[in-house]
Amino acid sequence: MKFSIYRFDPDKDEKPYMQDYEIALEPADRMLLDALIRIKTVDDSLSLRRSCREGVCGSDAMNINGRNGLACITPLKGLKEPVELRPLPGLPVIRDLIVDMTQFFKQYHSIKPYLINEDPPPETERLQSPEERAELDGLYECILCACCSTACPSFWWNPDKYVGPAGLLQAYRFLADSRDQATAERLDYLEDPYRLFRCHSIMNCTDVCPKGLNPMEAIGRIKTMMTKRTI
């Protein structure tokens, strides 16, 4: 199978280049990550992040034939050859397929991604009905792989000012939690021309999410909450 992979090692390369690889696959190689590991046995300098190899840790997000996805759950079958692999767009490249995610996590941290409830906790659990809990489905499952935010032009242009779809999905995860008491504070923070309102609903985020989540819908719901509180 043929691959064309973005290479850049700041220790020795003046500028990035695309390197071609052709490898023979084994029957057990089903996912793109399997092929990359096979390439790495031949060329140990090819650098990428990977860990769980089952799509839950979010390490191996990359741009695969022009579309962001996780290598470990992208089947080799059906990929157009040569498979063109590049680092996630819009973030600084550290080396090869590894990007610097500092800005991405900064935005995630900015929305206070934790439950805020100032009441003294009860002896046992806080109660939450199954319906209230169901509000968190499709939100809490995010794996912070950054496929969505790095597919979003608004995030490319303003990664320091626009929270981005991943951060906003988590902002809504806490807004939607019946146990959270910081709704006003959270909405105040997001009421800003950039943080939330740089989203122009082009749906790239929802389109690429490898977990099938819908950041755009969550962003829409935050906007609705904001509208509601002004009237």
């Binding site: 934790y114 906790p121 659990e125 806080r126 009905s129 199954p130 809990r133 968190l136 809490y140 959270d180």
Partner: peptide, 11 residues
Amino acid sequence: EHYGMPFDRLE
């Protein structure tokens, strides 16, 4: 749970 863990719930 108090930290915010989204446990599934009973009726």
